[in-house]
Amino acid sequence: MSYLPEYTPADVTPPQMFLNRRALIAGAAALTVASPARAGSPYSTDEVPNTFEDITTYNNYYEFGYDKADPAAYAGKLKTDPWSVVVDGLVDNPGTYSLSDLIAGQPIEERIYRFRCVEAWSMIVPWQGFQLSGLLQKLGVQAGAKYVAFETIVRPDEMPGISGSMIDWPYREGLRLDEAMHPLTIMATGLYGKPMPNQNGAPIRLIVPWKYGFKSVKAIVRISLVAEQPVTTWNTLAANEYGFYANVNPEVDHPRWSQASERRIGGGLFAGRIDTVKFNGYGDQVASLYTGQDLTKDY
């Protein structure tokens, strides 16, 4: 079973070519002759992606341990094939879907997004995925549905961080329906042209680039369309620190640290910081979702 029906590793743009993206665009006419045309998504940033190594060795995935190196060390044990996803709640087509059935017909494309962690670090990641809106249309959202809730798999035998932690598993996250339907919101099945590495949330995860990373739930096994705002893991653990919305916002500090700036991973010991941009720089596309909301209250 493939998570990437439209790409094989042979189609991958090698990392060194990403680094030459601007030169590549300049020479696009010549290159299109040599390689199949693959227009970049207008939703992608032209910032240089982090290396595959950075993206796959620096992860928060507490089911595998608290340390950021733990997921890379232990996630290999997680079996992601076969994989099924329960779809329930206010949908026309509920059921237990195999992964291939779930994503069948969804056009997978590359999205190079900024990824901003609530811990004030950030990366640029070339994801492959499809818009969640397409999947929700296929599933048939019923009139009463206002939110989408997600759950991550719980397999204590394959996820050594689960036992002995104080978190009430499964990991739960959710979006308001309009956020879920936004074209920037994707279900990602790969990165750098490869199937999603286990430590990054294989086989399928959410990516919401204008929100802190913890909203982008990994290894999804349940998608529920619901009427009420769903219970979410970090919000339950510390409601004053992690809100339901969790939009990237330099004006609203985390109670224990400033969100005004961030460390961009990959720059080395003396990289310093860059200013954090509201909605992680996606404000033009998403700010209108929150018209009339006080984002200092709905943080």
Partner: peptide
């Protein structure tokens, strides 16, 4: 040993 990590300042 911090130098070879993705986020050396934080690790250090």
């Amino acid at each position: 040993s911090s130098l070879s990590t993705p986020d050396p300042a934080k690790v250090l």
